[in-house]
């Protein structure tokens, strides 16, 4: 089983920590910034992303031997888009409120660089089982960063988490946190803390290219 092999373990740990898609590779942060002003939306977005990422990785890996390399990008995009449409339809049917709030950002999962990046960098050269594990773990690595940011933004910006008011009357909402600049600052702060304190600064410069 690929789930217990040493290689799979390495993949999982890499995606959660030293090779994390968000704060090390700085990929896919468009949606990171856009949906993190409320925890609820973030969770839905993350589940959609994990679903799309793991299944598209699996599919790309299954098809990798038959894909002509010249048109592989196109094929990958179509596979990804198919799964995103499933997410979109399910959301629209069962959670229309959240669907409306997320607006175009569900569709924008297609252009989330993480998914394309994992397909190109991993699924094209690895067996299906391992690719699936890679997809799930990269998705989880992305999700927990988003959740941390979302918790702070909603708490500071609206005094609540998951729509439940936590801070009392005395709390003055930091409106800036739920607006655009707050997202940029939170993300920068997060990268700073993780890179500066946890990952020792020998891997700098890796993040921007």
């Amino acid at each position: 089983m690929p789930l217990v092999s040493g290689k799979a373990k390495k993949v999982i740990l890499g995606n959660l920590g030293s090779d994390n898609p968000v704060f090390v590779q700085v990929l896919g942060i468009c949606s990171t910034l856009a949906v993190t002003n409320a925890v609820k939306n973030t969770v839905v977005m993350c589940l959609g992303l994990i679903f799309t990422l793991s299944l598209s990785n699996l599919t790309v890996s299954l098809l990798r031997k038959w894909m002509p390399s010249r048109i592989r990008m196109m094929v990958e995009v179509l596979i990804i888009a198919t799964y995103v449409i499933i997410v979109d339809i399910v959301l629209k049917a069962y959670y229309p409120d959240i669907w409306r709030q997320l607006g175009p950002y569900v569709g924008l999962i297609i252009t989330n660089c993480i998914i394309m990046g994992r397909a190109e960098a991993f699924a094209l050269s690895n067996p299906p089982g391992l690719s699936f594990v890679d997809g799930v773990s990269a998705g989880v690595g992305y999700s927990y960063v988003l959740l941390v940011i979302a918790v702070f933004r909603e708490l500071l910006g609206a005094g609540s988490i998951w729509g439940v008011q936590l801070l009392g009357e005395w709390w003055e909402n930091w409106a800036i946190m739920v607006m655009a600049p707050g997202a940029f600052f939170m993300m920068a702060l997060f990268i700073w803390i993780v890179k500066g304190l946890i990952i020792k600064p020998d891997a700098d410069g890796k993040g921007t290219s």
Binding site: A188, I193, K195, G196, G205, G207, T208
Partner: peptide, 10 residues
């Protein structure tokens, strides 16, 4: 340290 590249750009 840690802010170079992506951090400071954000």
């Amino acid at each position: 340290v840690g802010l170079e590249g992506a951090g400071i750009t954000l």
